[in-house]
Amino acid sequence: MTRPTPKEIKAMADVAGVPVDAEVATRMANSIGPAFEGFAAIAGTLPFDLEPATFLLVQAAEVAK
């Protein structure tokens, strides 16, 4: 988990359909950067079941049972 750069944020926003200019991307990077630095010490150590991206997959599997 690394601190995102303004270039990465702009690319992600463009893909998401919410284009932002370079100044806004820079402000976003500066705003969320400290959160990434704060979690750097535990990055990759959380149990997989706490990963939010898998929520829908787990929810669907429980419904299918």
Rank of each mutant, 00 (worst) to 15 (best):
I9Y: 13
L46I: 10
I42V: 13
E37N: 04
E8A: 14
T2C: 06
A64M: 08
F48Y: 05
A41F: 03
G33L: 07
P34C: 10
R27M: 08
T5S: 15
D14W: 00
K10L: 06
A40L: 00
A43S: 14
A25Q: 08
L57W: 10
M12H: 07
F36D: 11
T5D: 14
F55L: 13
K7S: 13
E8S: 07
L56G: 02
A29H: 08
V15H: 04
A61V: 10
Q59Y: 09
A25I: 04
G38C: 03
L57Y: 10
K10Q: 15
A13Y: 02
F39T: 13
A25F: 08
D49W: 03
A40E: 10
E8W: 01
A35I: 05
T5I: 04
V18P: 00
E37A: 14
M1F: 11
F55H: 12
V20M: 05
G33E: 06
V63M: 09
D49T: 05
K65T: 08
A64W: 04
E37G: 07
G44L: 12
G44W: 10
E51C: 12
K7M: 12
A25Y: 04
G33H: 01
K7P: 02
A29K: 06
E37L: 14
K10D: 05
D49N: 09
R3K: 15
T5L: 11
A11V: 01
M12A: 15
G17H: 11
N30W: 01
A64S: 13
V20T: 06
T45H: 03
P6Q: 06
L50N: 05
A11I: 12
A11D: 11
G17N: 00
E37Y: 00
R27K: 10
F36H: 02
V58Q: 14
A25T: 04
Q59I: 06
E23S: 14
E8I: 10
E62M: 12
N30E: 15
P52E: 05
G33Q: 01
A41N: 01
A29F: 05
E62Y: 12
V20R: 07
V24H: 04
R3E: 15
L50G: 09
A11G: 00
V58K: 15
L50T: 02
E8C: 02
P4V: 08
